[in-house]
Design a protein around this nucleic acid. Structure first.
Lengths: 112, 112
DNA sequence: ATTGTTTGTTCCATAAATAGAGCATATAGA
DNA sequence: TCTATATGCTCTATTTATGGAACAAACAAT
């Protein structure tokens, strides 16, 4: 290591990641599935699964969500069908929004 | 691209990632905040934010969740307080579960 | 229509994640 | 208690993500 690499993560975000990791671990254990089994099903290494369950913020969201799904966790409290539907609607909403954002109105002019 | 890189991602997981990215983008645009502004607040590059909003599964979950939080999105439908509380409870639940999972009982013996 | 800004994209250098193996420990089940 | 095995951890090699700059195109506001 030659550079400290300060990667900031708010308390809330960190907590959410840890929470998801624990949900995964709980689901796996309840199912009596070994880490290796779940890791293999997800196509990742056992080591990565361990970091995911521990709540390592450096893991790719793809790996984390994939494992969560395979563990039987519902994302956004929506089943695949409803999620797809919401996703469509959201895409439509985005179309209606201005695509380029002008910085919010300035503070009152203070240069006088 | 020279190597297909077989990184499996189920439809459901991919959809969830895309959904989150769009939620972020929507929140940002509604706030009339530029990509650069949000990226800077999150301590990441504009390019990474773009990939996040597009739903790239390769982004770190730490970066994605951090941006989501800064965009004002509630994770797991819980505010920081309740999330922390649930997290605690889940940790306690995990204590009660067997820490090492024996592979689920085999299918009925079919070798006779 | 004009214009300054935002976005989308590419390329490259560097930092970081991931796979894989290996090993000690904890542990579930007999 | 005994023991096969699951877990937790460390190390290294490789793959991949990320930051930063640069550029064209799209766009909002005038």
């Amino acid at each position: 290591m030659s550079k400290p690499t300060t990667r900031t993560t708010s308390r809330y975000a960190a907590e959410a990641i840890t929470y998801l990791g624990r949900l995964i671990r709980e689901a796996r254990l309840v199912r009596k599935e070994t880490a290796e089994q779940l890791a293999e099903r997800a196509g990742i290494s056992r080591g990565l699964l361990q970091r995911i369950e521990r709540g390592d913020p450096g893991c790719s969201i793809g790996a984390v969500f994939e494992v969560a799904v395979l563990a039987g966790i519902r994302l956004f409290d929506l089943d695949r069908e409803r999620l797809a539907a919401n996703n469509e609607n959201l895409a439509r909403t985005l179309t209606l929004l201005p695509r380029a954002a002008r910085p919010a109105k300035r503070e009152v002019k203070d240069d006088f």
